[in-house]
Design a binder for these strands. Structure first.
Lengths: 334, 334
DNA sequence: CTGTTAGCGCATTCAT
DNA sequence: ATGAATGCGCTAACAG
């Protein structure tokens, strides 16, 4: 049977309030008493009930991470980063999938907060940009932070990397190798990062004096299948690209797959670039050139903003980092 | 401010007990009263506190899924499957990473149960085979189920696929294409599935009248890096294999990567086979031949065993399914 | 320094 | 069919 604070108090020969004091590291407990209580806790292997604590004090020591993301790698790393910081701070992480397209979306988040007494929320893309939710959270005065927001940046702390700069740099890097026909696969329209990365691509082309060819820009959805479809179309063009920049790693994997199937060798005949959450890109290494996108670090830092110290209103956490893996080649002769 | 059951009672003009009755679908409430209460619930957007409920009744309506697994895909799919069934049954899923090698491993799980009042546990490999934990759970009388256990199968319900049969079939399939030097990359020693799959490989060789060449069997750890290393060694042998059977998808990805790097074309010059949790294998399609391993379904069914109806002591849930993707080739001429 | 009392929000006897 | 009182395990005033 689960021991309670009363069992501990009885064994230590004190009142439950004294036990509570020890558990919460409060002052005004004599050395000896404290030790006796601690021994009883050990002996009984007592662990305070989070439910009881949540009721008694106002807060639950739980935060929720909300996501609606098609990429297992993104989800896994975001979760890992947030959980790590939670652990360190003695919080528990509620990991909650949601559906931003549902008419009940905001209601469901509200229900989550009320049911769990969550102390705060961490929003990951594309939840991070749902205006209706942001409004509701502000109204309720629920603390929250955002990962990679695309708008309304003034309303809460957030973490992000500079997608425009990163995509610009990648595009210029490919151009620097000699590529002049560089295709781009756009991400999911619901994600503001998709727009930023596209903007970076265009800035990169412009900086290199390359004209944008609309036929080389394809809409994707940040998932494997859309990258694959886009690459199939691109590679069957009369004048195909010599490089394809897919704006996340799942789509890059789709591009690699399509190229394999068409017998096109990477990187000798086609250069492929992507955004990298480590594992996926490593699986495809060496054909892939990637931007290192530390999802885990973004989530860790966001959690820290929510729970740790007094956060500034806005934080620019991480610069982008361009990382070249493997041997992206200059364009093949034609 | 969060509405409570008292607010609902006041608005509906009844006592909190009546509200409680309506919330829990109990009998002995008149039609009209029930409707009035429901309207008040809607109007106030009332959601009962899980913490208060957990205290008042004995159970928390929460279950925990324990994992200690290096594969993001595995973790993601297991989580998704378990969460889905939880949702349907009105439970909340606590998704908990742990470290089976820690000396505090059992103590930490015990702490989790006491802190959260979890009603039951779902154990995924390799947690599923930690004898010390199983003993403790039995002693405490905590309900639990296991996914793909390798031993002590009598003690609780579990779900699994037949790894021995699946690996046998895959090996025989490769042999049927004409391969006679089929290599095998073994999984992590802590997972019983690693042994089962190796056994299947051996049975397959035997059934085809092929002698096992110890040089063609390499130890891996179910992660990308170990698959890559194993393949590098295998492909540099004096007499390299014509097919490599990696016993999970992360390792298969490593094999594909190593082959690419060495300029070996798949599947023309090397056939690669793996175990597939869909996404990873799809990313590498078409070079890969895979066994379809529905992690998500296994987790869903395990959760159902834990929460749904009266489960039998043991359930054989799913036969394995061999899935051929793309065009695995016969062995290259030498 | 330590103990007593009163809730936190809900379900659960037991009355009515 | 409905309501008042009691308690789940803990913390928070408020004594002493």
């Amino acid at each position: 049977m689960r021991p309670t604070i009363r069992d501990v108090a009885a064994m230590a020969g004190v009142s439950i309030k004294t036990v509570s004091r020890v558990l919460n590291n409060e002052a005004h407990v004599s050395k000896g008493t404290r030790r006796r209580v601690q021994e009883a806790v050990e002996a009984l292997r007592f662990r305070p009930s989070m439910a009881a604590r949540a009721l008694a004090r106002g807060r639950s020591h739980q935060v929720a991470l909300l996501y609606d993301n098609p990429s297992p790698y993104y989800v896994y790393h975001a979760q890992t980063g947030a959980r790590e910081r939670c652990r360190e701070l003695g919080f528990r992480l509620i990991f909650q999938e949601c559906d931003i397209r549902s008419s009940e979306f905001v209601a469901e988040v509200r229900a989550l907060i009320d049911e769990t007494h969550a102390d705060g929320l961490i929003l990951s893309p594309p939840v991070t940009d749902q205006a209706a939710l942001l409004t509701e959270l502000k109204r309720r005065n629920t603390p929250f932070v955002r990962i990679a927001p695309g708008n309304n940046k003034g309303i809460c702390p957030y973490t992000y990397i500079d997608d425009v700069a990163a995509a610009t740099e990648m595009t210029r890097y490919l151009a620097g190798l000699g590529h002049r026909r560089i295709a781009f696969v756009v991400g999911h329209a619901a994600h503001s990062s998709a727009r930023d990365r596209l903007r970076g691509y265009r800035k990169g082309l412009e900086a290199e004096g390359l004209a944008e060819d609309p036929a080389l820009v394809r809409q994707g959805r940040y998932d494997y299948e859309s990258g694959r479809t886009a690459a199939q179309e691109l590679l069957e063009l009369g004048r195909p690209p010599t490089a394809i920049f897919a704006s996340n790693d799942d789509m890059a994997a789709g591009v690699v797959s399509a190229a394999h199937e068409l017998g096109i060798r990477i990187p000798e005949e086609l250069s492929v670039a992507g955004y990298d959450d480590t594992d996926m890109a490593r699986a495809l290494w060496p054909p892939l050139t990637t931007i290192h996108q530390p999802t885990r670090a973004l989530a860790y830092a966001a959690t820290d903003l929510l729970l740790g110290g007094a956060p500034p209103a806005t934080v620019r956490l991480l610069e982008h980092r361009l990382v070249i893996r493997g041997s992206t080649a200059p364009p093949a002769k034609r």
